[in-house]
Every structure is written in C-alpha cells, then in structure tokens.
Design a protein around this nucleic acid. Structure first.
Lengths: 107, 107
DNA sequence: CCAACCCATAACCCCAGAGTTATACGAAAA
DNA sequence: TTTTCGTATAACTCTGGGGTTATGGGTTGG
C-alpha cells in the first residue's frame, strides 16, 4: 500500500511535473495548451503529468468545450506539511518550530 | 543545474530512503548495521541510500572505530518548508495560511 | 457534412536508479 | 600477523516511468 506521503513525494519529485503544479499555483487555472506552451515537453507528456497530478489530488480539471482547464488543489499539500511538522517535532519543541516558520514567512 | 527543491524532492521520493531518514529523526543517531536490520534491503543498499541522503545534506556521518553513525540534519528541510509556504502564499493571505498551519499543528 | 482543433490514450523507446552479489578496505580482536 | 567484523565500493541486472510519435474521440467552425 502507498501512503499519502509516498504519493505526494513521488508525484512532486519530477521537475517537469512540479513546474506544472507551480505554474498552476502562481497563475491560476490554465488550459493544457497554455501549459504545454511553456512546459518544454510535448503535449502528450503534459497530459500524462496532469493525469498523475490529478490522481494525487494536486489538481482538478474542468471541461469547457474542447479544452480542459486545470487548477491547483492546495489542500492536497496537507500531508506534506504534516510530515514536515512531524519530522521537526521529533527534534525541537512546538514553539521553536512555530517561531521558525513565522520567521521564514516574514522574510 | 539542479535546485535545492529538485534535490530534496528527488531524495525523499524513494520510500526506503525516506524511511531511513524518518527513523533517524525519530530515534536519533544510528549505525549502518542498526539501520540495515530494519530497512528490509541489503546493507549495500542502505549505504547507497545514506550516501544520497548525505549528498542532499539530510544526514551527517560520524566515524567511530569501524562503525559509522548517521544522524538527521533537520536544517536541510528548510527548502521544502520554503516551497510549501510559497505555494500556499500564491493562494491565500498570510494570516489564513498561518491559521491553517496552527490548526494543523494543534491536532 | 467535413475540416480543423484540443486533448487523451496507445504503443513504443530509453535510461536513471534501486536492487542484488561480490569484493575491497580499515579497524578491532585473536 | 591473521582473522573477523563493519562499512563502502564495484559491477551488474532489471524495472519504473518519462519521453517520443501516432492515433482516437469529442467539439467547434466553415
């Protein structure tokens, strides 16, 4: 069986795929064509990556006529945050960890 | 060129390797033998994974006699936190995001 | 209806990398 | 010194999965 962490890390490990997800986070909903234009790989490759992202719950698709719009689903990152927090929790106290996060976000 | 995010995600994508890192976070410093005993793979495989983790800065090694002790380096997770925060930042305001993180840590 | 278009799927190639066994190397023990 | 132990490296195999081109399946426009 594959845990949510397995799925997330594996899905985000590929640079091309992660770039697609980042773009959807940055620029919002995009069509496959728009994504392909900047992906640096062929359209079928983009479609496959989007399918993987969808399976992982990281994106959602919306069909409109003959084009498909994809959008990022930020909730799917929750297991990643959980995992990081847990790893951090093994080390330092809760408040230290929080402080770190806040400082990091401030800069 | 490979960004810190690339390295981190790629390194943590493998379940066996991530399990090794998690164990080092949980139980602290461990010898290769101790890690091998629970890894479910051969000792050379464990050594290779540890080498990859070391290259990524996720672990440090300490030689004592004929055994090598490995320990987790939590600082190396910083780019992962940065990345997650940045993705979250594209979506919601800073306070909403913070609230989410706090809620998540509370449970 | 037919053509052009957008996207998904099929079929295939190729290689990075995770696993193995065998072996080399340094340190402790005999 | 010789042997045994702990770990790293070498050499190799093999599978997963990311890339490609070709094609299918709806959808819009002429």
């Amino acid at each position: 069986m594959e845990t949510p962490h397995d799925t997330l890390f594996r899905t985000l490990a590929d640079p091309t795929r992660r770039a697609l997800f980042e773009r959807l986070c940055r620029d919002g909903e995009q069509t496959v064509g728009a994504l392909t234009a900047q992906a640096g790989v062929s359209q079928p490759a983009v479609s496959k990556h989007l399918a993987v992202l969808k399976t992982a719950g990281l994106v959602a698709d919306r069909h409109e006529g003959r084009q498909t719009h994809y959008s990022a689903q930020l909730n799917a990152l929750a297991p990643l945050i959980d995992w990081t927090s847990r790893m951090a929790g093994f080390w330092e106290g809760r408040f230290d960890k929080l402080e770190d996060l806040l400082n990091r976000m401030d800069q």
